[in-house]
Simulated scan of single mutants.
Amino acid sequence: MTAFLNRTIRQAALAAAFAVAFSALSSSASFALSAEAQQMCTGDAFRLCSSDIPNIPAITACMYKHRADLSAGCRTVMDRDLAAQQPKVAAK
């Protein structure tokens, strides 16, 4: 029972830390994630980058490093969010 309780508390703490880290990422001027990206990528971040939580730059780097391993939904929304943040270049 104690092992189960400890595991549950650890998972809840990781979820809270990840939520805080992703919230900070979404408010960062350099890399803002939409609420949809947060929702679509939370599982991937836990699966691929849990050792980096709550280090925001490390999570971001890890997600880019493992881009090929991201779920299709996460990869799609991250790509869309990043493209939206790129400065628009005027066509000549």
Rank of each mutant, 00 (worst) to 15 (best):
S27Q: 11
I59F: 01
R7T: 04
N55L: 00
I9Y: 14
M63Y: 01
L70V: 14
L48V: 04
A84T: 00
A45K: 02
A12P: 10
A32P: 12
A29Y: 09
S28I: 09
A19Y: 05
T60Q: 15
G73D: 03
D44T: 05
K65W: 13
A72F: 04
S50E: 05
S26Q: 11
H66G: 02
A17M: 14
F18V: 14
A17Q: 15
A24R: 12
S30A: 11
F46H: 14
D52M: 14
M63A: 03
Q86D: 07
T8W: 07
G73Y: 01
A3H: 07
E36A: 01
M40E: 07
A90G: 05
G73P: 09
C49H: 02
S30W: 06
M78C: 01
A32H: 12
S26R: 05
M63S: 08
A21G: 06
M40W: 02
S50C: 04
S27M: 06
M1G: 13
Q39K: 08
S23I: 12
N6Y: 09
L14H: 07
A19H: 15
A29Q: 09
V20Y: 10
Q11S: 12
F4G: 07
T42K: 14
Y64S: 10
Y64V: 14
N6T: 12
T8A: 11
M78K: 07
A3S: 15
A24L: 05
